[in-house]
Amino acid sequence: MRRILILALISILASYAQAQDNKSETTFKCPASTAESSSLKEIQDFIAAFGSILSGLAAAGAIYVAHRVHENQKLLSQRQLLLPLWDHMATLSMIDPTAPNAQHAVKTVNTLELVALCCEGGMIDEKVILRTFRDAFMFHYEQLLRCNIIPGLGKDGPALVRENAAAMAFYKKLEMQRMSRDQINRI
Score class of each variant (00 low, 15 high):
148 N>S: 13
95 I>R: 05
69 V>Q: 04
14 A>M: 08
170 F>R: 02
6 I>G: 00
167 A>V: 06
16 Y>F: 10
114 L>P: 03
143 Q>W: 02
55 S>F: 04
119 C>Q: 01
64 Y>I: 09
79 R>E: 11
187 I>S: 12
14 A>H: 01
177 Q>L: 12
149 I>Y: 06
133 F>M: 03
74 K>R: 12
10 I>T: 01
143 Q>F: 03
131 R>T: 11
147 C>E: 01
186 R>W: 09
162 R>M: 04
30 C>M: 00
94 M>Y: 12
22 N>F: 11
41 K>W: 04
172 K>Y: 08
11 S>I: 07
29 K>D: 14
126 E>N: 14
72 N>R: 07
23 K>R: 10
77 S>C: 03
29 K>L: 14
53 I>W: 03
57 L>M: 10
179 M>K: 10
47 I>W: 00
34 T>E: 12
143 Q>G: 06
145 L>S: 09
45 D>P: 00
86 W>K: 11
87 D>F: 06
90 A>C: 00
82 L>N: 05
127 K>F: 15
121 G>M: 15
128 V>C: 06
1 M>Y: 06
140 H>C: 04
47 I>M: 05
28 F>P: 03
133 F>K: 01
2 R>S: 00
125 D>S: 12
154 G>Y: 00
22 N>I: 14
30 C>S: 08
147 C>F: 01
67 H>V: 05
50 F>K: 10
40 L>Q: 08
187 I>H: 13
187 I>W: 03
9 L>Q: 02
149 I>M: 10
112 L>P: 05
109 V>Q: 09
25 E>K: 10
155 K>E: 15
177 Q>G: 08
177 Q>K: 10
53 I>C: 06
29 K>N: 10
130 L>V: 00
69 V>G: 01
169 A>P: 00
83 L>D: 15
143 Q>P: 06
154 G>K: 02
86 W>A: 14
21 D>P: 02
169 A>N: 07
42 E>S: 15
186 R>T: 13
159 A>Y: 01
81 L>S: 05
99 A>E: 15
135 D>H: 08
94 M>N: 13
126 E>T: 15
79 R>L: 07
112 L>T: 09
85 L>V: 11
44 Q>M: 05
1 M>A: 08
94 M>V: 13
26 T>V: 02
144 L>Q: 04
62 A>S: 13
94 M>D: 14
21 D>C: 10
132 T>G: 00
20 Q>E: 13
179 M>E: 14
55 S>M: 14
29 K>W: 08
169 A>T: 03
28 F>T: 15
183 Q>K: 07
103 Q>H: 12
120 E>A: 14
95 I>N: 04
41 K>Y: 03
63 I>V: 13
9 L>I: 02
12 I>T: 03
174 L>E: 07
118 C>A: 15
150 I>M: 06
13 L>H: 00
66 A>T: 12
